[in-house]
Simulated scan of single mutants.
Amino acid sequence: MDTPWTTTPLTAELLRGALDLERTAHGLLPHRLPARARAQYTDPQLAMAESQPSGVRLVFRTRATAVQLDTLPTKRVYVGAPPRPDGVYDLLVDGEPAGQATAAGGNTLTIDMTTGSFESRTGPACTVRFDGLPGRAKVVEIWLPHNETTELVALRTDAPVEPVPADPSRPVWLHHGSSISHGSDAASPTTTWPALAASLGRAELVNLGLSGSALLDPFTARAMRDTPADLISVKIGINLVNLDAMRLRAFSPAVHGFLDTLRDGHPTTPLLVISPILCPIHEDTPGPGAPDLSTLGTGQLRFRATGDPAERAFGKLTVGVIRDELARIVERRAAEDPHLHYLDGRALYGESDAAELPLPDGLHPDAATHRLMGERFARLVFGDGGAFVGA
């Protein structure tokens, strides 16, 4: 017998983790930066990163035993590199993992890393289906692929759906960082290190990890300033080195300005500044970073640092230089801001970890390291004595 499907309109009440929702010709496109921020810099890399819904999830209450979600994903293809796996949709039932699915098809974005060019091709919408759910009333979460732009087309269930009010006992944690925070090379959207840490810390995550775009952009600071949050963290450094985006003279005032903007909207919210995790290629060697073209076609793209360590004397940034400066800035500001805290990123992933779990491409942690970082963050920051305790 055919399933008697109920179609539920996709609205903001069903979504968490997005700062903006765009109505498209196909449905609803979640954004992790608001329209005003997106209009200030229309770079394709930033547009791709902020539209990839890391931490964005559908949340609803239902007795449904079957759920269908029609989506239009955008797949990435890198010229000369092996095909990327389809993005993963994680299903949670009452907070517990209950299934995974992928969506084949959709649009394609072809990226040539040797030239920086982007080429788009349209494709068909797809259907993600979860069956065999318990027939009782329950809270269902569908976490969208953290690394795949996803337009939401239609939601169908075999029982009615209703929104779920936010749990007031769970603080909203607003986090900003680079591709590592975005979830690069994590296994699935609920296993990025911020998602794991949020789950262990019983927090509601808003993840503004923006691959390649954690650059102290003022529009990102203003977006965070204007976003309600109980806890805030910013992970600063690696993208500034990767892109050779600024020198020390510009970096220090930019950090102060970013933090000042956050404090304009969140004057007493616990605010944690996190320095880069260990990155051997950039510890003492400045950027820019670049793909190692000799590894294209080998099945494992790697990155390398192209700067000269001697250029540190002229203000070029390395992750080591950035750690020292961030620690100095936070120590100075904390004298007047008791809610400001600092975490050395090497406490999440350091030298001993690199020996056991080296970064596969020289920059990004693998799935096991995401889990390690998430567990450590939860213990150090949400645990006893941590920056987020008692907020």
Rank of each mutant, 00 (worst) to 15 (best):
P30S: 09
V59E: 07
E141A: 11
S117V: 01
P85C: 15
G87V: 02
A35T: 10
R63I: 01
L109R: 11
A101L: 06
T42Y: 07
K75E: 01
L91T: 00
P44G: 14
V67P: 03
G106N: 13
G99H: 00
T71R: 08
N107D: 14
H31E: 01
V128S: 04
A98V: 02
L91K: 00
L92E: 02
G55T: 02
D112R: 12
R32V: 05
P134I: 02
E148Y: 04
S117Q: 01
R38V: 05
R57V: 01
G116F: 15
R36L: 12
T65R: 08
V128M: 04
G80Y: 06
P97V: 10
A64T: 05
E141P: 09
G95M: 11
S117E: 13
A66S: 13
T62A: 13
S51R: 15
E148K: 07
V128L: 13
T74Q: 12
M48Y: 09
K75G: 04
A101G: 04
V128N: 03
G55N: 00
E96N: 08
D70T: 08
Y78M: 15
Y41K: 08
P34N: 01
T62P: 03
E119Q: 11
R136H: 10
H26L: 11
S54A: 12
R36Y: 04
Q52G: 12
S51A: 08
D70K: 06
R61I: 05
P134D: 06
T127G: 00
K75C: 04
T149A: 11
A37V: 09
F130G: 02
D112F: 13
L91E: 00
Y89N: 01
D86R: 14
R61V: 09
A35L: 14
P44D: 00
D90F: 11
E50V: 10
T71Q: 15
D90V: 07
E50L: 12
A49P: 06
L29H: 10
R57G: 00
L144M: 15
A37T: 09
